[in-house]
Amino acid sequence: MTGIEVTTSASMLSPITLFLQADIIVKAVMIGLTLASIWTWVIIIGHGMKLRRVGAKSEAFERDFWKAEDVDRLYDGAGKEDLPSARVFSAGVSEWRRSTAGKVVDREGTRSRLATAMAASVGAEMDRLYDRISILATIGSVAPFVGLFGTVWGIMRAFTDIAGKQSTNLAVVAPGIAEALFATALGLFAAIPAVIAYNRLTHRLNRFEAKLNRFADGFHATLSRELEA
């Protein structure tokens, strides 16, 4: 008989049972946190694969660039690729062609315009790569408080049940307290991966931005030498 009671109590405290027994407010909190957790993992997996792919292709493009003897041929061939480094390279070549098209070339003005064009291209590429990363920071900072709201609401409901039934028996208190703690757990389950992923992805993006800036600086130096020639 005792074993049956223990099994029944354990089944009553399962996550599905806790969700079904919760009131509409706590259910809304649980659903929202579950969706936030799913969204977090979609961003983590999607951006992780994207950064790995973009990084590998960009490295290959930069190797081809530094080995190329004819920049114009590389521009006509690989310069139109859908890669951050290729678009920075394309911005530099386009500005170079416009600035050196006339009979008289303003060397300092050309250098300044080249630096501005490639810096703007680097900024645009990083804005594109940072897209949706801020969502992870938002989830990481907001989810615990949403879970805490569900916790407070569940505890208030538990105290209401105690007052209504005029009993502090564990069978009366446990379901409401368990719902409250489950909401807290969901908040942490959504927030912890979001914070870790945000820090990790931001670190990888900062490294990629530094590498892209080094490529732009190297290309700018190459074009500056062409001006001197």
Rank of each mutant, 00 (worst) to 15 (best):
G46Y: 11
K57Q: 13
E62T: 08
F65I: 01
E108F: 13
K50L: 15
K67W: 10
L148N: 02
G140A: 04
E108M: 14
W66M: 04
R128A: 15
S99T: 00
A78M: 13
A137L: 04
E62L: 13
T116G: 06
P144W: 14
V122K: 04
V54I: 13
F149T: 00
A56D: 06
M126Q: 06
R111H: 01
S94K: 15
G77L: 12
M118I: 03
G147Y: 05
L35R: 09
S99N: 03
G55S: 13
R107L: 10
G102T: 03
V54R: 08
I139W: 11
G92A: 02
L83P: 06
L129H: 10
R128L: 14
R53L: 08
R113Y: 02
L51S: 09
A120T: 09
D131N: 12
S94D: 14
K57C: 05
I155K: 07
D72F: 15
G150F: 04
F149I: 03
I43Q: 03
V104H: 15
S141P: 11
G109H: 12
T138G: 10
A143R: 02
I43Y: 02
D82H: 09
T40R: 12
S112F: 11
S85L: 09
Y75W: 15
R113L: 02
A36S: 15
I43M: 05
V146Q: 07
S90M: 06
V142G: 11
M118E: 04
V42A: 12
T151L: 05
Y75L: 13
I44S: 03
A124S: 15
S94Y: 15
G46C: 04
D106Q: 05
V105I: 12
A143P: 08
L148Y: 04
E59C: 12
T116P: 06
P84A: 00
V152M: 08
R63V: 01
T40D: 10
A143L: 02
I133K: 11
W39Q: 10
S134H: 09
L35C: 12
K67N: 11
K67D: 09
T100H: 01
G77V: 03
T151G: 02
E59G: 15
L129S: 09
G79Y: 05
V142R: 08
I155Y: 14
G92C: 04
A119H: 12
K50W: 07
A143I: 00
T100F: 08
S121D: 13
I135Q: 02
A137R: 03
G147T: 00
R157I: 05
L51W: 07
A143C: 03
G46L: 06
W41E: 03
V122E: 11
R87A: 07
D131M: 13
